[in-house]
Design a protein around this nucleic acid. Structure first.
Lengths: 201, 201, 201, 201
DNA sequence: CATGAATGAGATTTCATTCAT
DNA sequence: GATGAATGAAATCTCATTCAT
């Protein structure tokens, strides 16, 4: 009878995500968010502490989702490079899955990294920690087992992080895209890392 | 008696660059800039059209400097890979040369890419155009002459751009740095692109 | 306990009208208006788009009131001159009814007539259109029926408009007033327009 | 050899008159005036006390010119109505002679009439004094000598002032003009004032 | 006389946030 | 839970006016 009790909190989050992504955090007003969400401004303050809190929740949720997907990547694979391949895939797929969130993180976080307690800084730190653990694990094992060339560990982790970050940004910012990004990235890394990469393919 | 003839316009630009880099464009007020520059607020408006103009000038100057350095990269080299190596070096060196400008560009531009006439969008477009021309040139020639593997052109240009962007961002954002970034990046690319990369080194 | 439910929007309009009239539009600040209206500055912006909007509303309302009164002037009268008499009366009476509005229109509009889309220009144009229609109607009919001398139509409409405008301004600007303005104006016009004006009175 | 030493003071006055007329006093900045006059801002302050002073001089000069022309109207004429005719002509001709000055006075003075010591108020007062003296003189004599109908003196002076003011405004504001304004005005008044106006013409 | 540069004072406007109901 | 109305605090920008030279 009553209109289906929609989840206003979710409406607000969605509206905010879209607007933040489209106009930037500072460029978006709470009034716009309320209108987009079909509610009035004070409702935002009923559900959230304020505009900053809104942003925080969005970022937390987005990173949590990413981390959770990262956690489900198979830990047992035939080769170590497969794990790296999976990580590349995850990075590129996640953008398709939550484009606004990624765009928001990619476009807004950089200018907020200065605050050491801010959610951006904390999230990025955690992200790096996880990436490093994941990649260092693969590389170390792969090198030990003779699958990979003997590359410097830290610097290569760093490089792969930079590459992944560059790729996710490229896609997140909706810059013009070329075909075969994922395959090319994978092959580029394979040739560089895997011994006898040329014999197999 | 006469106050040292300082160039206030430069002072303002410098103060603005630092503050924008440290706090973001929106997070910086003209009052802060004026104080940092040791002048009063209206002086900003005497020399510049407004806050946006300040930002525009900074970005224009930074990109111009980068482009000019890119233009002086040697166009004749023994191998094509050397050119790519030079480009990587340039990217990593330029950050050291104008850290605030790069940080500003890297942290503020993403959120301003929506405006198709904005200076960020225009600069990034030009940047991509130049990178693409440079890289596509190297790759094509290198492949034709048998120096490089036969990689897909557009996608590899794209990938290298992403990598360079990731590297510059990593450094520009002053994230923790590891040793040997440049060498690692160069070797990573060499192994992936150059035939017989393993025989020589 | 509850503060008397005053209509703040009306308070603002009233305060603005008075101040604009007394000090001119440019000479009046939003702060003054807010103080006069017993509210804080932002309230103005809650109810109106801005200072210009305030002015626009006042002018629109004033002209609308005038036009509406003009529309209620009797269209059937014994003589055509009576209609002109009614118009003169209306002009002089309206000033008493909304002195500030008239003063504002009379004192501020002239300097804003340049903007072809501004409310002043549009209102004055509409005013002239209506005056012309009204007067030309009377004169034409009066001449045709032999009530009036055969005067040139357009030029006389023009002249009567100038006279009415001069009268309304004189009164609107609160310049010193003499007795019998209305009667004198009516008789002046009657003698000039009506045949045998001297026989009857 | 040197460029002919133009009178910069005059240039400034001229520029200011034009700009004030075109954009209003408050809408015109001293910077605009200086540019229009081909000088720099401080030069204005060398020649004048400030922006207000500029306005004052313009108004004083314009009124002085008008008054001086009024003083040269023939004091001996065959009929008293001729004097009124002359006054009407003067009003309409003066606009052609100094359109910007008149436009400025007509459009800007109304909003400045409140200040009893301001130049506008003083000029308008003087204007009214002179008009009244002139018109009252004509009417009184005309009535005494049987040339005019026996109209109420003060009120008719008032009415004629309003008419003249209305006419000058109409023309000064560059509103659309009809043909035969002057003749129509003269005849309108003649019919109303002069006995046997219909026998003669 | 003239100017490039500067400034004090303030104007309009915006916006996140909060009451009172 | 929700809202219409309100506000404190500030931000950007303007401008007449003045120095130092």
């Amino acid at each position: 009878m009553a209109r289906p009790r929609v989840n206003k909190k979710q409406d607000i989050l969605q509206a905010a995500t879209g607007l933040f992504a489209a106009q930037g955090f500072d460029g978006t007003t709470t009034l716009q968010i309320s209108k987009e969400a079909g509610i009035t401004e004070p409702v935002i303050y009923y559900h959230f502490k304020g505009k900053d809190d809104l942003f925080t929740r969005i970022i937390i949720t987005a990173f949590a989702k990413f981390f959770s997907q990262m956690d489900t990547l198979p830990s047992k694979t035939e080769t170590e490079f497969e794990k790296i391949e999976n990580l590349i895939s995850l990075h590129l797929d996640i953008v398709k899955e939550m484009p606004d969130e990624i765009y928001l993180a990619v476009s807004t976080c950089p200018s907020r990294l200065k605050d050491p307690e801010g959610i951006c800084r904390r999230s990025v730190r955690e992200m790096r920690r996880r990436l490093k653990a994941y990649l260092a694990g693969c590389l170390e094992k792969g090198i030990r087992q003779g699958e990979f060339h003997s590359v410097p560990l830290d610097a290569t982790v760093n490089l792969l992080s930079a590459l992944l970050n560059g790729l996710i940004r490229q896609r997140g910012l909706k810059l013009k895209e070329v075909k075969g990004v994922k395959e090319t990235a994978v092959e580029f890394c394979r040739r560089s890392l895997v011994k006898n990469a040329f014999g197999h393919r």
